[in-house]
Computed example of a mutant assay.
Amino acid sequence: MSMIQTGRIELNSTHPVATVGGDTSTFTQVTFPTPFPAGSSVVVLPLTQTFNGPETPGIRVHDVTVTGFKIRFNELNGGAFRSDGLHATETVGWLATTV
């Protein structure tokens, strides 16, 4: 049986361009309200709920575990995905489930 949790976070980007893979120092940690059972495979599906900044705020998720995940904006700018720094605060809704 799958377990599902949902939530939302107010997220912005005040950081410079992230160019080093695996460097999550500019990511925000999200903790699930209830940890998933140990050994579960968890998938996180985030979606921006607002339109406050001029560029499209793509979302990067990393380090998904049974207790939470890390998240950061990765803007779509000029037709190419790249993390180009600043972005206004947006509401991001997320759904996490076991698979």
Rank of each mutant, 00 (worst) to 15 (best):
I4Y: 14
T6P: 03
T6H: 12
I9A: 02
E10K: 13
E10I: 09
L11M: 12
L11T: 04
L11D: 05
L11N: 04
N12S: 13
H15C: 09
A18V: 11
G22Y: 11
T26H: 10
T26M: 06
T26V: 08
T28M: 07
Q29F: 02
V30Q: 00
F32Q: 13
P33Y: 05
T34R: 10
F36W: 07
P37C: 04
A38F: 14
A38T: 15
G39H: 05
G39P: 06
G39E: 09
S40Q: 08
V43I: 14
V43R: 14
V44F: 02
P46Y: 03
P46K: 02
F51C: 03
G53L: 05
P54L: 10
E55P: 04
T56W: 06
P57C: 13
G58T: 05
G58A: 10
R60T: 09
D63P: 08
D63W: 12
T65N: 02
G68R: 12
F69V: 03
K70C: 08
K70A: 08
K70N: 10
I71G: 00
R72N: 06
F73M: 03
N74V: 08
G78N: 01
G79H: 01
G79N: 00
A80N: 07
L86V: 03
A88W: 02
A88Q: 11
A88F: 03
T89N: 05
T89L: 09
E90Y: 13
T91I: 15
G93L: 14
W94D: 00
L95W: 13
L95F: 10
A96Q: 01
A96V: 02
T97K: 10
T98W: 14
